[in-house]
Simulated scan of single mutants.
Amino acid sequence: MNGQLTTMTQLADAPADMTRERVVHVTSRGESSDYVAAGIDLRDASLTLPAAAEDGTIAYDYYKGSDVTHRVLDEVFVLLRTGPTEFALAVRGKDADQPETWETRDVSSELADDSWLTAQADIRQLNPGAVQRQITTGEVDDIETVAQDLAGVDDLETVSDLTSQFDDADVLAMAIGVGALNGAVTDAYYADLQVGDTSCPIPAVIPMEVSFSGPQGRGSGRLTATLSLSIDQAGLNIADIDAETAKLAPYTNVAPPVPIVGRQNAITPDAVSQSDGDRVTLEFVPGQVQQLLAQRDASQVVVYGAFEGENPDMFAAVGTVEEAGRGSR
Rank of each mutant, 00 (worst) to 15 (best):
A175N: 06
I58N: 04
Q288W: 04
D34W: 12
F307M: 03
R218C: 07
Y62W: 15
E144S: 08
D113C: 09
E322I: 09
V178H: 13
A243W: 03
A225K: 05
M1D: 07
M314V: 00
A298W: 12
T224G: 01
T198Y: 10
W102T: 02
T19Q: 08
V178C: 06
I40T: 10
A225N: 00
N265M: 12
Q125H: 13
V76S: 06
T101D: 02
N182I: 08
A169M: 09
G93N: 13
S328D: 04
D170Q: 15
G305Q: 10
G217E: 09
L111C: 07
D155K: 15
L150G: 02
L292I: 07
L156I: 12
R29F: 13
C200W: 14
M174D: 03
D168R: 15
H25A: 11
L248G: 02
D41A: 04
K94C: 02
D276Q: 07
S66K: 14
I176R: 04
T186I: 13
P84Y: 10
V131Q: 01
K94F: 09
A184S: 15
P256C: 03
A175P: 12
N311I: 03
R279Y: 07
L73R: 15
I267Q: 04
T252E: 10
T101K: 15
Q291W: 10
D41G: 01
V285D: 13
D313K: 01
R29A: 11
G217L: 10
P257A: 07
Q291A: 14
N127P: 00
G56M: 06
A16P: 01
F166N: 03
E110I: 09
G325W: 03
Y60L: 11
A51R: 13
L79M: 11
L193P: 03
A52F: 05
T226N: 05
F284K: 01
Q165T: 14
F166M: 08
P257Y: 10
Q233M: 04
A239I: 09
Q233A: 13
I135R: 02
T9D: 07
A324I: 01
L248Y: 05
D197G: 10
A169R: 12
Y251N: 06
D114G: 12
E283G: 08
A191R: 10
V140A: 11
S33C: 05
N311G: 04
A180G: 08
A234Q: 15
V210G: 07
V302R: 01
V280F: 01
S108R: 06
V302H: 08
V303H: 06
V258D: 05
D167N: 14
F307E: 04
D74W: 13
A294H: 09
V159N: 03
L42D: 04
D74Q: 15
D67K: 13
S46H: 13
S108C: 11
D170L: 14
V91C: 03
S33F: 04
A298V: 00
A119W: 11
P312G: 02
S164W: 08
V302K: 02
Q300W: 09
Y304D: 00
Q125K: 15
P256V: 11
G217N: 09
E308Y: 00
G327V: 00
Q165S: 15
G39H: 13
L181Y: 12
R81D: 03
P84C: 04
A90L: 11
Q148G: 15
T245F: 08
I267M: 06
A45P: 04
A90E: 01
V159F: 04
R43N: 00
T118N: 02
P215W: 09
L282F: 12
S275G: 00
